Simulated scan of single mutants.
Amino acid sequence: MTAQLAEKGTHARVPTPRGPLPPSRPRTPKRERAFDDVPRWQIYVPLGLYLLFTLVPFYWMLLFALRPAGSTSLVPWPMTFAHFDKVWNERSFGVFFQNSMLVGVATLVTTTLVALAGGYALARFDFRIKNGFMLALLCSQFIPGALMLVPLFEIFRELRMINSLGSVIIAETVFQLPLSIILISGFIKNVPVSLEEAAWVDGCSRFRAFRAVVLPLLRPGLIAVGSFAFVHSWNHFLFALMFLSRQDRQTIPVGLNTLIGSDSVDLGALAAGGVVAAVPVVIVFAFIQKWLITGFSAGAVKG
């Protein structure tokens, strides 16, 4: 009897508990757990030192721009805007600002449009010289812009475009296109072709399918490419110095160079001009930072 009960007990079913099971705790990745074990000060102290190292030059520039001439105070008090009035009115920085803005916006638009067309061709079509063309685009990034100043100057002189903002816009666009085409091509490759094929089945043309399906997904990439084209053209000095000799056609980098004399430098006016040159770029990046990070980290499509 005991043996039968023991045998029957071995085959008995274990009763299962009734009711919902308790929720399981999500597992934390090992990398996140490793960072959780790090003391906070080991993260914030290096970041604080880096932030201090980055912001000190900007504070020094603001200090010279806002304190009176001849003052040695480390705090801009009493505050004065005389340096800004001098560079904006007497040094024609209002004209320089308009020229730089026109060059930057025009370069942004032309670079983005041409790079969008070229990137789509590289991403969606196969042709015989595709690999050679990509190699040429990559190799062009190793050519310094200073080597092309004399040939470009001769070309623009024959076209009668010297002292024209169009010459600077064309030169900036040409030098921004290789990298921009490569980046846009990579973003378009991340968009599944099946999305366009589904639009074609619904009766859309290739251009309409691209505009309705692909283009909205490329917004982070387009913002990243356009912002770098704008900043590069805004800060570039050589092309504007070489192709624009008239004062009413010069841009902000060339205008800052005119504040540096052979015997002396007006530090207050130079710092005020630097603030005028830096503020638009800071504002642009402050508004597009989330799109910029998304464009370079996640690509055009998630999942």
Rank of each mutant, 00 (worst) to 15 (best):
D126E: 12
A123Y: 04
H236S: 08
N89P: 06
E158W: 15
Q289M: 06
L149Q: 03
A6Q: 12
L66Q: 02
W200P: 09
Y50S: 15
L66I: 11
S73C: 03
T294E: 15
M134C: 08
I169G: 01
C204M: 12
N190T: 13
D126S: 06
F58W: 04
M134N: 11
V114R: 02
A123W: 02
E196H: 11
I223L: 14
R211E: 07
A34R: 09
A272N: 05
L102R: 10
S264K: 06
P192E: 01
K86T: 15
F230E: 03
W234Y: 05
R208G: 06
I155R: 00
L215A: 11
I181G: 00
G203T: 01
P216F: 05
G48E: 11
Q176N: 13
I260K: 14
Y59T: 04
V56I: 11
V109T: 13
G295W: 00
P39C: 06
G145I: 13
P17W: 08
T111P: 01
W77A: 12
V279G: 10
P46F: 12
V284D: 05
N99K: 00
G132E: 14
S24K: 11
L108M: 14
S233E: 02
T112C: 04
P57A: 04
I283H: 00
L149C: 04
G48C: 13
A298Q: 05
W234L: 07
F97H: 06
A3F: 07
S167E: 09
Y59I: 04
A209K: 02
L102I: 12
S262L: 10
Y120A: 15
F35V: 06
T72H: 07
D85I: 10
K8A: 15
F153L: 12
A117H: 13
P20V: 10
P178Y: 10
A198V: 08
R124Q: 05
R13V: 15
A117T: 15
R249H: 10
E197L: 07
I169K: 02
A272C: 03
A65G: 09
R33L: 07
G94P: 00
P26Q: 12
T251L: 15
N257F: 10
S180A: 15
I181Q: 00
P26T: 14
L62I: 01
F58G: 03
T294L: 15
V275R: 04
N163W: 08
N99Y: 01
P15N: 05
V105K: 00
S140C: 07
